[in-house]
Design a protein around this nucleic acid. Structure first.
Lengths: 332, 332
DNA sequence: CTGTTAGCGCATTCAC
DNA sequence: GTGAATGCGCTAACAG
């Protein structure tokens, strides 16, 4: 593990010169450059970034906080972030928070302790006031999650319109009794519900509060949601699920009740999760422009690190309704 | 962003004393300790880890290389790694390699450049010789993937026995024509195939080479595998798939051919992926002790960092056969 | 074009 | 029990 000193000595130059060829800045004669490079290659020298980072007071690392790496939804988002980061000489680190506030706080120390230059949140267990304080002092960007009080750059889609389109699709198929399986306390699902309600009202139908149920963001949440909806005297004939995972649970539960999808009940999911086209039936869903979301998020992050851009804006990207088997017009 | 200097000044002590209370080592009178701590709290001081890491020449960070974070199989493995790391004062960083050798090489530079203390591979695009050279010089552990020529600690299950049990399960159900959808060039799948062949031979049946097909480690690989197997004049009545994702593709393709699972064809997957219990039918599979695999891998990593343990051993943990709908005795 | 030097923030040895 | 001084490896100002 040679140091820059040893390289300099062996090449018969000063450390400054070695540093110059290493970083390819400052003037170096092509002759000494060649000489130094030869020694670098010979010794297989790799600069110790601990020294460089301390000196430069930056690491060119961006930390991305994920609630759970196994959520396939974030895969392409992260890819968009990575590509953009790499193009700009930055690297992406990923950490799992499991919605654990203590764990999240450890990773935030990476930021405060200068181990990373910025943090991208795809979820947070922090209260808004605390988050805003953090965002005021450090480069922080929110991706795909928000509430109205947050003061930090946010990249997302227009969830209200997406919810409107998903619901309108069901209405156009002739459904009049449309349920919704949602989750509590999440800004994006609140907006999706507003869109759901607007679509129903604009169609001249009535919003039935019993048709809106709240469960967890999971397969099991979907199963429980269907159970609750089908305990009603007059259950819905279509259900808009806040996520594809919930939709999968919903379909599985409907099947176990002997109901067919889409023949007896139509289902719409959300996210275009990788499971959506694979499931049986394949699931109609809202596709988010995940790669672009990641890309845009990273662009804003890099701007913030450079000090430009203000702290208080929201970017909304375009989504798509993808129609699959789970809402095909019934064959019967 | 105060430095240790400013804390020392404000507290009226030397930086050495501040450092002592920070790290809780070396003698400090309880009085000055209290005084210093008060200033630390007041200034909200957080040590700059760039300085500390350079000085200590360690970062207490372990990098975990994943081919793709969205593979839910690794979620619990990573959790096991994280818990073990945290218990020992280490943190886990995750990076996506996408099986891209250039990307992998960037992340390996983190190790060579002292940004992380060790790297855990769950996959690698490197050739064995290169890998072995790396493993000789740096703390490196392989998790769940291997080939016989690799000289580094490896944590995995006994894939030969697992393949044997999966196949034997199908034989016990009365199947005599058992296909296998595998992938090429992966040590674990090679071992699973050996187990598959041993089970068939021990049952007095014959291995039919046409029944073993190779495709990619994916949903589409499963669809193609079934297509190939069912072009045969005498197709199998049961198929052992090297992964649950392949099993999902296989089932989807069988259904589209009008064949029922398990009534017409029985399917066994591998990994107990989160999709396995959710799919319709739910999938019989081999469950790996994922959390323990992660835990053990990290334990070995920490040993290697401390310099103990040799470089050339393999740890095999216990697996389980989980029987679900996809191999239920046919109703017909 | 090249070398000398200072210092990033911290932990640690050695005096006292 | 405490402080002064050194240096981890590197970059960047400055001088030549």
């Amino acid at each position: 593990m040679p140091t820059i000193q040893e390289v300099a000595k062996k090449a018969g130059v000063s450390v400054a010169t070695v540093s110059r060829v290493l970083n390819d800045n400052g003037p170096v004669s092509s002759n000494t450059r060649k000489k130094v490079q030869a020694v670098i290659d010979e010794l297989n020298y790799q600069p110790n970034l601990l020294g460089r980072n301390l000196r430069r007071s930056e690491t060119r690392m961006i930390l991305v906080l994920l609630q759970n790496i196994s959520n396939p939804f974030y895969s392409k988002i992260v890819k968009g972030m990575e590509d953009t980061a790499h193009e700009n000489g930055y690297n992406v680190l990923i950490c799992n928070t499991n919605t654990d506030i203590d764990l999240e706080s450890i990773y935030l120390d990476f930021l405060k302790n200068k181990l990373v230059d910025g943090v991208i949140f795809t979820c947070t267990a922090m209260v808004t006031a605390e988050f805003n304080k953090l965002a005021k002092n450090y480069p922080v960007v929110l991706c795909n999650e928000y509430n109205k009080d947050i003061k930090a750059p946010i990249v997302t889609i227009d969830n209200e319109i997406a919810g409107y389109e998903a619901t309108s699709h069901l209405i156009k198929l002739g459904h009049k009794k449309i349920g919704m399986i949602s989750v509590n306390n999440v800004g994006s699902s609140y907006d999706r519900m507003k869109g759901y309600m607007r679509a129903i009202e604009e169609a001249g139908l009535e919003v039935n509060d019993d048709y809106i149920v709240y469960h967890t963001f999971s397969y099991k949440g979907g199963m429980r949601g269907i159970k609750q909806l089908f305990e009603l005297d007059d259950p819905p004939t279509a259900v808009f699920c806040i996520s594809d995972l919930i939709a999968v649970g919903a379909i599985k539960e409907l099947k176990s009740k002997g109901l067919r999808v889409p023949n007896d009940v139509a289902i719409v999911g959300f996210d275009n999760n990788s499971i959506a086209p694979m499931y049986d039936p394949s699931i109609t869903t809202i596709a988010q422009p995940r790669y672009d979301i990641g890309k845009k998020t990273m662009e804003i992050m890099l701007q913030r690190i450079k000090g430009s851009g203000n702290n208080n804006y929201i970017v909304k990207l375009e989504h798509d309704l993808i129609i699959r088997e789970s809402t095909l017009p019934s064959i019967d």
